[in-house]
Write a protein that binds this DNA or RNA. Structure first.
Lengths: 363, 363
DNA sequence: CCACGAAGTT
DNA sequence: AACTTCGTGG
C-alpha cells in the first residue's frame, strides 16, 4: 500500500517532461525511503535515475517496497489533467494493477481522480558505482542547455575538457568547429578538496600550461579526490539485457590520474582570463527552487577538479538531458576519464540524474 | 589578416537571415574600407549588395583586401550560436581557409569560439551603374513588407506605379486583383529636387489625368533628375556567366524620360486622394536604428519623382527582399522605367541593397 | 493578457 | 526554409 501526497503536481509533471522522450516505460520503485526510478533509455545508451525522497512529500506512507510499472506516455497524459499547484496524491494497493491519482486544488472544492493502468516491467536495476569524480562542475542549467544546443547545430558529439582554465565544450562539425569555454565565476578552479587561495599560484601555472603545452605536467596536479555525496554502493553492471558494455564504469579510479587524452591544438586565441576575485554576474536565472549539495546556488560556474578530464559525448543525449533545466537553476556535471558522465539536477528532496557513457575514439 | 569586432552579433545574424535564402555562397570582400558582399541570387535574377563600413565596427583592421568565400548556411549555423548582444569578432588569416568567430557575452566569462571553413568562390563582381532614378520612395519597411506579402497572396507579380498621386502597388490574380496606394505623408509628391507648393497645380492636373486618360501628357512632366547618393561608378553588366540579360541596365538615362509603357487600363475605381497636408499615420514601426541618407526617419512615406514610372516585378523576390526589414525601419525604392528596381535598407554604417530587373510585357 | 519559443505543416 | 498554430513563460 502506497500513499504519497505531493504538495505540487508540477514537480511530477516536470519530471515526466524531462524523461518521457528518453524512456517509454519505467518502474517507480516505492519504499519507505521514497520513490526511485531507474531506467535505461530506449536505445540503452543512457541511464536515467530519479529520486524523490519521502521527506519531499506532504504525506508519505509505503508499507512495503513495491514497483509500479508505468507507461510514461500514459502518466504524462494523466498529469496533464493536473494544474501545477494542485496537490497530487498517489495511491496504489498491494495487489492492484492500477495507480490512483487525486488532484486537489488548494482553496477549492475541486477534486479530480484518475486511475492509471500499471504494467509489469522487468526490473533492470543497474548498479551505480559511487564514483569519486575527478571533475565536478556546477553551472547554470540554462547555460548548459544553450551550449549543448548550439554545438548540436555543428556536430554530433562534444568533447568536454576540464582543466585549470575552466570547462570547455568542443564540437567538430563539417561546416565549422565550435568551442565554448566557461571559466569559474570566482576565477578559481578548485583543486581537490581545497578551494582557497593556497592554489592560486598553481592555477597560474596551469593556465600557462594550457596556453602552451601542458600535457607533460598534468599528472603533477594530483590532489585529494573530489568527493561526491554517496548513495548506492552497488556495481554499475547490473542485470540489464544489453547495452551494458557502455557502462563498464570503473568503480574506483585511484591511481589513474595520468590520463593524457586531451588535445587542445590550435584554439588558444584570446583566452585571457582576469583571475582573482571579480565575481562576474552570470545573469542568474532565479527560480528559487534549486537545492545544491553544498549551499544555495548563486548562478555562477563552479569547478572543482582533481586532474584534467577530457571526454566525448553524444550531443543528442546531452540536449535531451538538458530538458531537466525546468527542475533546477543549476546542473552538475561529474566526470572522470573513461567513466560515464553524470549530469545531475537537484531539487527539493530529490534529484534527476543521467549517466552517459563517453564515446571512445572517433566513433 | 582581418580582424573585425562587431559590437552586436545580432547585426550579422539579421544580414544573414536577409540573404541566406537568396544566395547560398558569397564572398565577403574585406578591405580597409570595410566588408562588402555582392552576389547574384541563385537563379541570377536579383543582385544583392551588402556594405558594412569599417566605422561600424568596434574594432576593424584589414591589412590587405581579402575575399572570404562563405557558405551562408554554414555561417548561419555558426551565428545561431551567438546571442544577439554578444560581441562578435571575425578573424581570418591571410593564407588560411577558415574564418574564426569569437563571441563574448558582456559581463561574463563565457567565450565561444568557432572556426568555419571557407571556400573559393569565383568573384563575380558586377558593375552597378550609378543611376539617376526617376522615382525615389522612402516608406516604412514594415509597410513595404505588408504590401508585398499581401499582394503575393493574389498574384505572381506586382506593378508599381509612381505618379503625382503617390505610389501604387497593383497585382492581378486569378481570384482577385489588389491595389495598394501609398500617398506621401506630407501630401506632396516632390517633383525633381523641388518639393514645394509650386507644383501643387501640376499635381492636380495629373490626378485628373490618371483618373481619365493621361497617357498623352505624361511626358510633359519632365523635371530635374532625382539624385541618388553615389557609390560605384561601374557598369552593371559584369562578368557573371549567365542571367545578365536581366540586367541590361542603362548606365545613364538622361534623355530617356519619354517612356510610355505604363498601362492603367480599367482599374481607376476609387482613387480619390485628399491632397494637401493631411499626414496619415502609417503605423510607424519604431526600432530606433535606422539611418537614412537625408535625415532622421520619421516613419512616413516620402516620394520624390521626376516622371511617372511604372514597372512590374516578381513578388516572390520582393517578399524575399522585405526580410531585411529587421535591419531598418525604412526602405527606399529607386525606380526608373526599364531599369532594375533598387530596394535599399540602410543601417548604422552600412546598407543592404537589392536590384531586381523588371518584368517585360506580361511574362 | 501578451510575448516568446517550440512543434508541426506546407 | 517559412509560416502557422499551440503551448509555455513573464
Amino acid at each position: 500500500m502506497l500513499e504519497a501526497k505531493l504538495q505540487e503536481a508540477g514537480l511530477l509533471k516536470k519530471l515526466l517532461d524531462a524523461i518521457k522522450e528518453l524512456v517509454t516505460d519505467a518502474n517507480f520503485d516505492c519504499n519507505e525511503e521514497g520513490i526511485n526510478l531507474q531506467a535505461m533509455d530506449n536505445s540503452h545508451v543512457a541511464l536515467v535515475v530519479v529520486k524523490m525522497e519521502s521527506t519531499g512529500f506532504k504525506k508519505y506512507r509505503c508499507d512495503r517496497p513495491m514497483p509500479l510499472g508505468v507507461n510514461l506516455a500514459s502518466l504524462t497524459k494523466v498529469l496533464k489533467c493536473a494544474k501545477d499547484d494542485d496537490t497530487c496524491t498517489l495511491k496504489a494497493g498491494d495487489g492492484l494493477d492500477s495507480l490512483n491519482l487525486v488532484y486537489e486544488a488548494k482553496n477549492s472544492d475541486r477534486i479530480a481522480e484518475y486511475d492509471m493502468k500499471l504494467m509489469d516491467i522487468d526490473a533492470e536495476q543497474l548498479g551505480i558505482p559511487d564514483t569519486d569524480y575527478d571533475a565536478r562542475i556546477t553551472l547554470p542549467a540554462a547555460e548548459f542547455t544553450r551550449i549543448v544546443k548550439d554545438l548540436s547545430l555543428l556536430g554530433e558529439s562534444v568533447r568536454i575538457e576540464v582543466n585549470k582554465e575552466g570547462i570547455r565544450f568542443v564540437s567538430d562539425g563539417e561546416a565549422a568547429n565550435g568551442s565554448v569555454l566557461l571559466k569559474p565565476t570566482d576565477g578559481k578552479v578548485k583543486i581537490g578538496d581545497d578551494n582557497d587561495d593556497d592554489e592560486e599560484e598553481e592555477k597560474d601555472d596551469d593556465e600557462d600550461e594550457d596556453e602552451d603545452s601542458a600535457k607533460a605536467k598534468k599528472k603533477a596536479k594530483k590532489q585529494k579526490k573530489v568527493k561526491k555525496e554517496s548513495n548506492d554502493d552497488v556495481e554499475m553492471n547490473g542485470d540489464e539485457e544489453n547495452g551494458d558494455e557502455e557502462f563498464t564504469a570503473k568503480s574506483d579510479d585511484e591511481g589513474e590520474e595520468e590520463k593524457e587524452d586531451d588535445d587542445e591544438e590550435a584554439e588558444g586565441s584570446s583566452k585571457k582570463r582576469k583571475k582573482a576575485s571579480s565575481s562576474k554576474s552570470k545573469k542568474p536565472a532565479k527560480k528559487a527552487k534549486t537545492k545544491k549539495d553544498d549551499d544555495e546556488y548563486s548562478g555562477g560556474v563552479d569547478i572543482a577538479m582533481n586532474q584534467h578530464v577530457t571526454l566525448t559525448f553524444s550531443l543528442k543525449y546531452l540536449v535531451n538531458f538538458s530538458k531537466s533545466s525546468s527542475l533546477s537553476d543549476s546542473v552538475q556535471l561529474m566526470m572522470s576519464n573513461d567513466v560515464p558522465l553524470l549530469v545531475s539536477y537537484s531539487f527539493e528532496s530529490g534529484y534527476i540524474r543521467y549517466y552517459l557513457a563517453p564515446k571512445i575514439g572517433d566513433e
